[in-house]
Design a protein around this nucleic acid. Structure first.
Length: 312
DNA sequence: ATCCAGGCCATAA
DNA sequence: TTATGGCCTGGA
């Protein structure tokens, strides 16, 4: 199937996108800056305010930013962010052949893509996500953006939807704040990590662009050397913002799936889980993780919790 | 109401 | 190298 583009004024329609579920892709826990409004999703992506909707078998995206992108940049942003040039159907087929549990997860909810997010926003967002609910994560990020970010919504958008949107704050904007001001946005004990990170990145003590070019293991170590960043967050950054699809972030849900459905060992170590995932899923581990994560939380949530209870 | 969450750090063995 | 407690507080 070939894609067809239709480009209008600050709007774009893409027909013939295969293996793409917009709703699940935006709400499956990889990004925290999308809101459902009617049948559409409103989100801030790298300083642009986008309104995305899946309608008539096509993806429609509008640019509602104050400063709108030129058509080329707009198309580029959308293709890059959603990974539209990738043959995702082929990935799904390949994963289905490799593993029958992942095959079930894909059958349950196909078309989940890995978004290509901004590394800085991704890093801070997943620091905030530690021991936190998704709604809390989102509201903390909103408050950070309101306090430290720049306005991104156009006059027309604000009039139409009655709300103002802000871009994710830069490192230097956050470093101009303080631990206390970040804490009061709801970041809690994570505020010191965030403020420290903002200072480090602003002064050049950490270079995410450089890290993104390092070999996988080296990049992972570089990220984990940052105060407040452990294996889970490092791998989320690698997967969701650096296109490292071999990454396999292990949170409590993936841990349950691995311990009870794959390894049959309630006390399996994170190391064992990583080893297994690397051998089984190889270069597509990140996609396997995303499908398993969504399936575990929604379709298998109660079941996995029961297994966990019974193993105690 | 309580109760605990999509980890990380420090400390201890 | 692996195990444990503490962090803190907005939501369910």
């Amino acid at each position: 199937m070939t894609m067809q583009l239709e480009i209008g004024t600050n709007r774009l329609s893409i027909h013939g996108v295969d293996a793409f579920d917009l709703a699940n892709t935006l709400t499956c826990g990889q990004a925290f800056r999308w809101w459902r409004v009617g049948n559409a999703y409103h989100g801030v992506v790298k300083g642009s305010l986008l309104v995305a909707e899946w309608r008539d078998e096509s993806l429609h995206v509008e640019d509602h930013s104050v400063t709108k992108l030129c058509p080329d940049d707009f198309v580029g942003l959308v293709f890059d962010y959603f990974g539209l040039s990738d043959d995702h159907a082929q990935r799904e087929r390949s994963l289905c052949k490799r593993d029958r549990i992942v095959a079930e997860a894909i059958r349950y909810a196909p078309g989940i893509r890995i978004l290509r997010q901004d590394p800085w926003e991704c890093l801070i967002s997943f620091i905030i996500s530690a021991r936190n609910y998704i709604p809390s994560i989102m509201s903390t990020i909103v408050r950070l953006c309101e306090r430290f970010g720049e306005r991104v919504s156009s006059d027309e958008y604000e009039e139409l939807f009655g709300t103002r949107r802000y871009a994710f704050p830069s490192a230097s904007a956050l470093s101009d704040g303080s631990v206390e001001s970040i804490e009061s946005c709801g970041a809690s004990y994570r505020a010191k990590y965030i403020y420290g990170m903002a200072q480090l990145v602003t002064t050049g003590g950490a270079d995410l662009d450089l890290i993104s070019k390092q070999p996988y293991e080296e990049a992972r170590e570089s990220l984990m050397s940052l105060y407040g960043v452990g294996p889970k967050i490092a791998e989320c950054v690698l997967l969701y913002s650096m296109g490292r699809y071999e990454a396999f972030p292990i949170d409590t849900w993936i841990s349950r799936v691995m311990r009870f459905l794959y390894l049959g060992n309630p006390r399996a170590s994170v190391r064992e889980m990583h080893e297994f995932a690397r051998q089984r899923f190889e270069d597509l581990a990140g996609f396997a993780q995303q499908y398993l994560f969504h399936w575990a939380r929604t379709a298998k949530g109660a079941y996995l919790r029961t297994l966990e209870q019974n193993s105690r």
